[in-house]
């Protein structure tokens, strides 16, 4: 009985992104960079060097006019639960420094920059390319240090960073709740920066275990899928698309393979 109760309280924060709504405008990417003090480079087109916690990919169906179709796919860290959802996500399993960790209470995969020594095993392990290495110390344009958020620590050269589902927002929301004598927060109190910035309302964020949250129903949609599902990484980011070719693009199917 007791165990059941504690199980109920376990949260599993996740996202449902509606690809039919996403226009690829990139507002979420900008919001993410500003929110999380993500360093940027003079030449952001150099993708080996640039850091984007949330990156938008452009998918095409490979056909020519008039059947050509494109789809934009925003990709944050998928906060993989690993096989059986025990928290052994690919990156957590390989980190020799205990610098990345799975939190069983929230389902969030953390990255502790001061702990990471930059071996980049996790980058090799992550099937979603969600992790980025700091080849250089961040250089902020003059005066921009003053705009950095004090809620997210800045990174230095030689460490790996990735999307945290704006975990600091959870910490702050919980603080407010505790101050008011509550022990739980409402769905609206903890939302990621990308979710709030999306003008098309394509991103929904919440507790996948909580039936009161929008994502709880959305993830059960018949058009819902996850990326590379067959690897059993158990991502907490779901995608919705009414288009069959987009859903198929979520995994590596052989040409003649039936889904």
């Amino acid at each position: 009985m007791k165990e059941e109760q504690s199980k109920e309280k376990v949260k599993k924060f996740g996202m449902v992104i509606d690809l039919d709504k996403c226009t690829g405008c990139g507002a979420c990417m900008v919001a993410c960079m500003a929110e999380n003090n993500v360093p940027f480079k003079e030449d952001e087109s150099k993708k080996l060097d640039s850091i984007t916690w949330l990156r938008i990919y452009k998918l095409t169906n490979g056909k020519s006019f008039p059947d050509a179709d494109i789809c934009y796919l925003p990709r944050p860290c998928q906060h993989c639960g690993g096989k059986g959802d025990h928290g052994h996500s690919p990156c957590v399993s390989v980190c020799p420094a205990t610098a990345t960790d799975y939190n069983k209470e929230t389902g969030i995969v953390s990255q502790i920059y001061t702990r990471c020594f930059g071996c980049r095993y996790c980058m090799a392990a992550c099937p979603y390319h969600a992790r980025y290495f700091n080849w250089w110390d961040p250089v902020w344009p003059d005066g921009m240090e003053k705009y950095l958020s004090p809620n997210v620590s800045v990174r230095m050269r030689g460490v790996v960073e990735k999307c945290s589902f704006c975990f600091h927002r959870y910490q702050l929301a919980m603080d407010k709740a505790y101050y008011e004598g509550r022990r739980e927060i409402e769905e609206t109190e903890y939302q990621t920066a990308c979710t709030q910035s999306c003008p098309a309302n394509a991103i929904a964020f919440g507790d996948l275990n909580n039936s009161g949250h929008a994502v709880y129903e959305l993830k059960k949609d018949k058009n819902a899928f996850r990326l590379l599902e067959r690897l059993q990484t158990n991502p907490k980011v779901y995608y919705l698309s009414s288009r069959e070719w987009v859903r198929r693009a979520g995994d590596n199917y052989l040409k003649d393979e039936k889904k």
């Binding site: 025990h86 928290g87 052994h88 957590v92 980190c95 205990t98 990345t100 960790d101 799975y102 939190n103 069983k104 209470e105 929230t106 969030i108 953390s110 502790i112 001061t114 702990r115 809620n151 997210v152 620590s153 945290s164 975990f167 600091h168 910490q171």
Partner: peptide, 18 residues
């Protein structure tokens, strides 16, 4: 007494880190 960290079986890293 929390053991929410998969890596350490102690309290999770994202409790005191940001």
């Amino acid at each position: 007494g929390r053991k929410s960290s998969v890596q350490t079986d102690k309290d999770a890293c994202f409790v005191c880190h940001k």
